[in-house]
Nucleic acid binder design. Structure first.
Lengths: 349, 349
DNA sequence: AACATTTACGTAATCGTTTACGTACGAAAA
DNA sequence: TTTTCGTACGTAAACGATTACGTAAATGTT
């Protein structure tokens, strides 16, 4: 094992030619004799030559790295997004660097700094709930590092965005509950700071309105949307009302599962007494009893699309072309199971 | 917005001093006048100077990037490992790059190539099930890029390793079934190529032996360990035996959930007729009916430990210190729920 | 006053590769 | 034969920062 990795110089010296000739031979550039190319290639192989990408990245000022900041990698939705990002990025020769914000603005800020050190070519970010200053992102943009927002976006930053149609998904979910005959439909929502939550809330309201159902504030409960515990508690509260709901649309699956357990524990039946539908189609939702109807988000596709957008921007910037910000709104779909349909009739729509 | 990012040269020119002086001032080196330092710092701030890490990485031939290859990011276990890796790496100023092998050796190979382009300082890898050639990893080691194996390891590569005690976990799970009074205990296993699967199988066998129970090959079923479907089918087969089991230890949670559904669909009760225990404590396992007993793996801690090991190796190599390979075996724990304990007695042990 | 030391900087080399430009040589064109 | 051109290479500069070494001026020492 040599003291150092093989360099162009080592090959050049051994063949008695110059370094640029070796470089051009290896990169199959014209202006190099066919015989020289052969000799260089062979010796390079023999000496296990590997391009020093540090030098190349340095010269090109390009890393082929895409940074990704998401709140929590362990969430089904986000790990699927990352799955899409990694898969698509690889097709274009980009690597993906991951950072978790844990829903903390402070941590998010730290992530952008770390990424700057790693000289990422672009950033795909799903904002932390607590973030309401975007200067760390616009600063990246000023340094010609494009930023693409995904899922948790803001309209206070000019950038390309990938969202799914939370409004329509919520509207469809609520409409479905109405279609199966429910009339007193509750909603479990969360902090209305994130746009996604607001959109789901809006979809719920509009579905009621368009079906001539009155909005009853008593039926709208707030929680952190994170744990089943909260869903359980809030559902218990709803059940104890003098005029309890006959269905509930929960803004996340975990809370919906909590709600189902609350209904069952109260001696009531899902969906006969209270139908339940969630959002995001967590993997656990298909295995609980009864299986939970939910709204599918095209997570993998969102990740893929984000990569395409950011690479487009990276290359436009590099070629001094104008950058146009685009917003992709991706379709959701209902996945209907027994928690709204009843016995064994689950069908995807 | 200037044509290029501010360089040391820009600062030096503006102050009429040399580039190295600026460099030393910014890095707070001695030999620089206090007044000069102040002026440099101020101007750097004013001109929004940012160190060009491409140049620095190039000079130091170091990226502060740890590459991670895992089979599937969407698996609960692996996304938790990554969680631990990212969190711990950040403490040491390292970034983390992720690649998925999708359990394919070919893809794994591609990942190591991509990572080499990105000049990772070290690699943490959980081997694909199909991998049985390790030259892509030893090649990295020869190029002084340390490799740490995690969870899916091999004894055919000399490297540091992080595993959890699959044998003991399986032994404990099986022993628990015996303790709650079961005697005819089935096992659902998978391909015995991965060491983890083999260890779980061995733990199962030894627990039976040490409790004077006979191993019955009829009760040992093989499947891919991936989907609930397989668990369901195999359980159905077991139930149809002339002498069916009264408990089953499944090598993964998804198959255990399939098994539970098979038991319930056969009109039998869990755990009264057939108790079920899984492995890995998937998030869905706590929400199914009845909640599934399982074996907890210290996923996050495994990731953290892997990072500590690899950074130690990276720094030893950099300082020409001898590298010592270590293997950490981490403890598993039983989490007991109603699928083995019965009504609402679930307790962590 | 002569010398030694310290302070505060500058010069030059370096990391490995790429690329603009220059040039020697042989072949083809005049 | 002279000119022109293409081929196949070499030279030098560049990317941005760091660092070993050199040195002038200021200060201290005897």
């Amino acid at each position: 094992m040599g003291k150092h990795n093989t360099r162009l110089k080592d090959i050049a010296d051994k063949l008695g030619i110059s370094i640029p000739t070796v470089s051009r031979a290896l990169n199959d550039k014209p202006d190099i004799g066919i015989e020289t190319k052969r000799k260089v290639m062979e010796l390079a192989e023999e000496m296990h030559y590997q391009r020093n990408e540090f030098a190349i990245n340095f010269k090109n000022q390009q890393s082929f790295i895409i940074g990704v900041i998401i709140p929590q990698i362990v969430h089904h939705f986000f790990s699927n997004i990352i799955n899409g990002i990694i898969t698509e990025a690889e097709k274009f020769g980009y690597s993906v660097m991951i950072f978790q914000s844990n829903e903390s603005y402070h941590s998010e800020l730290k992530g952008t700094k770390t990424f700057r050190k790693s000289m990422i070519d672009g950033l795909i970010i799903s904002l932390a709930d607590t973030t309401d200053d975007y200067s760390h992102l616009s600063s990246l943009q000023e340094h010609k590092i494009p930023v693409v927002l995904i899922d948790k976006v803001t309209d206070r930053l000019e950038a390309s965005k990938i969202v799914c149609n939370d409004y329509q998904g919520a509207y469809d979910a609520t409409s479905h509950l109405i279609e199966v005959g429910k009339r007193r439909i509750a909603h479990l929502t969360g902090s209305l700071t994130p746009l996604t939550t607001r959109e789901r809330y809006r979809g719920y309201c509009d579905a009621l309105k368009n079906n001539d159902l009155k909005l009853d504030n008593e039926l709208i409960r707030y929680c952190d949307l994170v744990s089943g515990e909260e869903g359980y508690q809030e559902m218990k509260t709803l059940i104890s009302l003098s005029n309890p709901p006959d269905a509930i649309f929960c803004a996340t699956d975990p809370t919906a599962i909590g709600a189902i357990n609350a209904v069952k524990d109260s001696g009531l039946k899902v969906p006969e007494d209270i139908a339940v539908i969630g959002f995001s189609n967590w993997s656990m939702s298909s295995v609980i009893d009864p299986p939970l109807s939910s709204v599918i988000q095209p997570d993998v596709e969102m990740g893929e699309q984000a990569v395409r957008l950011i690479i487009e921007e990276i290359e436009n910037i590099r070629n001094d072309k104008p950058v146009v910000f685009k917003t992709h709104v991706m379709k959701t779909a209902l996945i209907l199971r027994q928690s709204t349909l009843g016995k064994k009739e689950g069908v995807n729509v």
